[in-house]
Structures are given as structure tokens and as C-alpha cells.
Design a protein around this nucleic acid. Structure first.
Lengths: 148, 148
DNA sequence: TAATCAGTTAGAATGAGTCTAATCCGCAAG
DNA sequence: CTTGCGGATTAGACTCATTCTAACTGATTA
């Protein structure tokens, strides 16, 4: 179910948008709401379908635009796996992704700072990296029930 | 330039193919030759164009087929970055990829076993991973000249 | 020689994502 | 007000990597 944004979430959205010279619009609020309501790394299509429940006139192009805007102002992260549809994730803490081979579900894996450090240390001199993507592929025993 | 396969490379190809019930064909040899001649993570299209120099009748579909076969029998690895075209890499040692933001070039980064181990250790119980993909995005000072 | 079968081929189909041109909407200036 | 401006939104056309399909090839087996 799609729950409403808390005041705090609204401020978070507004602040991030305004900081990068963007406006808060009803469409952006709707898309953001969808992302926060179910944190299951939805595809654009999934976001689109969920958001339509709340705003039936919303167009697919706008969902693409909104998500791009959010990525641009650091509100959400893109998650790519092989060449499958891009997924979106509002978890901003540094984390890796674990993709279940059977269900296709994506789980967040916390990334302790010392692991990040050891990763950075394997770069030869002259290599300077801003972004490190880590993704696991395998099987996960469903231990939590609040999966998608 | 496309150099011929060494006897050793030919055996390597044959062994891997036969082991998974596949045949050695002229097209597969040509594609494999291209991969080993310039180890710069080419896209399917690049492989296609290079291979045509040596085998003009070769079709794109066949290049796709060959590469898929090679991946299936562990001869090469697929490298994906965001949603760009898939690239192929004949380096089988465990390694990460560094993608230069400016040139688009992909460099292999050696992965020491202790880093692999620390990565595996961050998986919560119940998560079992076969494949770990690590990719860096950033800028690399060109220190070698034999880039593509 | 005929049948079989994997591999190859050209071209059509797919589908995620991007582009375009028209429209909408909020707001500031007149 | 009402006019004009600019960014946001929209529908639909378009792109392009990849996959699919159906016909063809060529080596091997019956």
C-alpha cells in the first residue's frame, strides 16, 4: 500500500530538490511517495504502475524524468544488474546489493567502512574512484517475510 | 591487429568447448581470436567489426551466439556497466573493473584473495553468493600507452 | 543417398530508455 | 486581471542493443 509522506520526508524531498534548483511538483511527490512506501527496488514500470493508483494521469515519461531528477540531486540510487531494467532504491547509506538468482529480489547489504577502505586500497596509483558498485548474485534463504 | 591463436590458445578453446558439449567452428575460432588479440573489453559490435576483417561473411547473430557460448563454458566474462552495451573480457582471474568516466575505457583491477574474503564476510547468514561483481567509476591517469 | 542436427544466417521483433513537439501551469511584470 | 515566460508534463515516435524466427549449410550417421 502507498502511505503518505511524513512531514520529515516531505522536507527531505523539498530540501534536496530546491538545493539543486528544482521544484517540488505533485508528480515528484507522488513518485517519491511510491519509492518510500515499499523499499523493494522497483523498476520504472513498477513505480509507474504504483504511482498511477494515486495519480492516474501520470505519464511514463514523467516517471523517468522524476527518477532522473532524484538521482541527480542524490535522493535515490540507481541499481543495475546485468542488462535488466534499472531499479531504484531510496537507501542512501553506502551498501551493496544482493540479487537472488531465483526470485530476482534485490536485498541491501550493509557495507562496513573498513571493507570500503580495503576496496579503495586495491586501486593502483593514478586511479581515482568516486563510485564503487558491489553486487552479489546468489541465493538467499528468505528469513524476513516483508519481501515484495 | 588480429594475430593468430597460439597452439596453446587453440587447445584452451577446444577443451573448454568440448567439455561443455560444444563444437569448435571457424566462426568461434575467429571470435575467440579477436578477443585474445586486443584485451580491451570490446562490445559485441566491436568484436563483430574486428572479426569481419578476418571472416567477412560472419553475421552479428553468430557473434552473439559465440560470445554466449563462451560465457557458458567459462571462457570469457561479461562486463556490464550501467545499461551500456555488454562488453567481453577473456581475463579469467578474479578481478574488478575500473571504468574511466572520461574515456569510457575499462581497466582490470586485480582482486587479492583477502579482499574477496572480507567481502564474502559481510553477507548476513542465509545469503550464499556465487558471483561478486565489483566496479569502480572514476578517472585514471593514463600511465600505459597500449590503451585501445 | 537420405536423414539428422548443431551451427549459422538475415532480417523481423522486442523492449527499455530517450527524444520531440505540443501543452500545461504557476508566477512575475505590465 | 491578463499576458508572457520558463520549467514540468504529456503522448507518442524513435533508437538501438539484444533476442527471436525461420530458412539454410555442412558435417556426420543410418
Amino acid at each position: 500500500m502507498i502511505r503518505n509522506l511524513t512531514e520529515q520526508d516531505k522536507e527531505h524531498l523539498q530540501e534536496a530538490l530546491v538545493k539543486s534548483g528544482q521544484k517540488v511538483t505533485p508528480q515528484r511527490e507522488a513518485v517519491f511517495t511510491v519509492l518510500l512506501s515499499e523499499r523493494d527496488h522497483p523498476t520504472v514500470d513498477e513505480v509507474f504502475n504504483r504511482a498511477r493508483e494515486v495519480m492516474p494521469g501520470l505519464s511514463l515519461a514523467t516517471v523517468y524524468n522524476c527518477l532522473e531528477t532524484f538521482v541527480g540531486c542524490g535522493l535515490v540510487r540507481q541499481v543495475n544488474h546485468e542488462r535488466e531494467s534499472t531499479r531504484y532504491c531510496p537507501n542512501l547509506a553506502p551498501h551493496a546489493h544482493f540479487r537472488d538468482k531465483e526470485t530476482g529480489q534485490v536485498h541491501d547489504i550493509e557495507l562496513p567502512p573498513e571493507v570500503m577502505k580495503s576496496l579503495r586500497s586495491i586501486l593502483p596509483p593514478g586511479f581515482d574512484s568516486e563510485v564503487i558498485e558491489i553486487s552479489f548474485l546468489g541465493r538467499a534463504q528468505a528469513k524476513d517475510t516483508h519481501s515484495n
